[in-house]
């Protein structure tokens, strides 16, 4: 079993990249590898409850539900949260100190910044 980490760093509503990163993360569980998603920099906004319908974009609710059900770790970089005063994280997304983020990345077999 490999450890795969996907890093989400972009603003959520300017692009479909973040939703696609989450969909890809769901897919990466299909060979029973351990998948972790890290939200950092502007990517932390993706880990909150937004209203993408306002900009005619689809909600990533399904991706978050699937990732939680499949036992994936969802970490939000605490310094990125603090810098942006982001507090309303989605259920199952855990704030993580920078040290934990670094450990997760260095212990991974594959890191995918998406």
């Amino acid at each position: 079993m490999k450890k795969i980490t996907v890093i989400v760093r972009n603003l959520p509503l300017n692009t479909r990249r973040n939703s696609e990163a989450l969909r890809m993360s769901v897919g990466l569980t299909l060979k029973n590898d351990k998948v972790t998603v890290i939200f950092m920099d502007d990517g932390v906004y993706s880990a909150t409850h937004l209203e993408p319908g306002i900009v005619n974009s689809r909600s990533p609710d399904r991706e978050f539900e699937a990732l939680s059900m499949l036992g994936c770790s969802l970490l939000a970089d605490k310094p990125s949260l603090d810098k942006r005063s982001v507090k309303n994280l989605r259920e199952n997304v855990v704030p993580a100190a920078r040290e934990e983020i670094v450990n997760t990345i260095t212990e991974s077999d594959i890191v995918i910044p998406f």
Partner: peptide, 10 residues
């Protein structure tokens, strides 16, 4: 759609 089709099948 993909990958939920295969995830749910599995």
């Amino acid at each position: 759609v993909c990958p939920y089709t295969f995830v749910k099948t599995k």
